[in-house]
């Protein structure tokens, strides 16, 4: 009898084996994901850096130059790969669309959480989810047929440009920012609202001075998320921005973004050439920026949690 107890205790039981199996299975999955991310980072970084190491372009002339014509050469014999117009274009459409979208998102979120939660859940939530699900090419197509002519008629110019891009991106990021803002408002505890109302605050004062104020970190996270989405959006922007690699002098002249030049150029270059490498450099900027947005949301979240 004694030996059988010893045997039972020292031998691995079926349950313990199952436990090990489950653990290793989930470990393999996560290792695979990490591996994919690391190899993508490595690949993009090595290709993107080749512009500077193999082709001898200086980082300054790439980030600060305003002439973009990778197949041509400038007067000094250096290739014309100034990416500043695209960088400017990307940041402009991102910030402008975020600035336009934020007040709408906050307004909609306040309505859906504070004023009419019932209608919000029944009607508005599905509408917002639908907006998230529309493919970006559809947004771009609508932008091309509606927004561009509208901008042309109201503001002049060709209609293609930063402004049209801003409008399209505004509609695209609005649902994301709104639904995240709703989440942020919903996490504000009910007892904050009760305390405020019990002190004789009106509903509006409660929303404005307590709920929104407590939700600031969450709202900022929502906006940064929207900005990350706007920064990385390619197709819809490409369809309405005009794709001229020029410094945007005004909001209605054709311009370009990092993503739009990337999608335009990637089919037309030979692997390993300068023209190809410099596109990878653009991709590297996009990657780094999405990393920056990611870190920003984390920092904001941490700061909010500490309070």
């Amino acid at each position: 009898m004694q030996s059988s107890i010893e045997e039972r205790l020292t031998k691995k039981s079926k349950k313990a084996k199952l436990e090990t199996f489950g653990k290793s299975l989930s470990f393999i999955c996560i290792a695979f994901i990490v591996l994919v991310v690391i190899s993508i980072l490595y690949f993009v970084a090595s290709k993107g850096i080749a512009t500077f190491t193999q082709n001898g372009v200086s980082i300054g002339s790439f980030l600060g130059g305003t002439d973009w014509n990778p197949s041509g050469k400038g007067a000094d014999g250096q290739p014309l790969v100034g990416a500043l117009p695209m960088i400017t274009g990307s940041f402009l459409v991102t910030f402008l669309s975020a600035i336009v979208a934020t007040p709408f998102a906050i307004g909609a979120a306040v309505f859906m959480t504070e004023i009419s939660p019932k209608m919000g859940k029944k009607i508005l939530q599905p509408v917002i989810e639908l907006l998230v699900g529309i493919p970006s090419v559809v947004y771009g197509f609508i932008g091309l047929t509606v927004v561009v002519p509208a901008v042309r008629n109201v503001f002049g110019g060709s209609g293609f440009g930063i402004l049209a891009g801003t409008f399209v991106l505004f509609v695209m990021i609005l649902p994301t920012v709104t639904s995240m803002t709703i989440d942020a408002l919903n996490t504000v505890p009910r007892h904050y609202r009760e305390a405020s109302l019990a002190l004789g605050a009106t509903r509006w004062q409660t929303v404005y001075k307590v709920v929104l104020r407590s939700a600031i970190p969450g709202i900022l996270t929502a906006v940064v998320f929207g900005m990350a989405r706007a920064f990385g959006e390619a197709l819809a922007v490409q369809m309405v921005i005009g794709n001229a690699a020029l410094m945007p002098g005004n909001l209605v002249s054709p311009a370009s973004t990092l993503t739009s030049i990337l999608t335009m150029g990637m089919g037309n270059t030979v692997m390993g050439s300068l023209q190809n490498n410099v596109l990878w450099s653009l991709a590297l900027i996009l990657l780094v920026m999405s990393l920056v947005f990611n870190i920003m949301t984390r920092l904001i979240g941490k700061k909010g949690a500490m309070k």
């Binding site: 007892h191 904050y192 305390a195 405020s196 019990a198 004789g200 605050a201 307590v210």
Partner: peptide, 20 residues
């Protein structure tokens, strides 16, 4: 009710200061 609640204040079971 806003005026009423200024006359009749309330303290809750859980301490609920605002995060300010």
């Amino acid at each position: 009710t806003v005026a009423l609640r200024k006359e009749v204040g309330m303290v809750f079971q859980q301490p609920n200061p605002f995060p300010f």
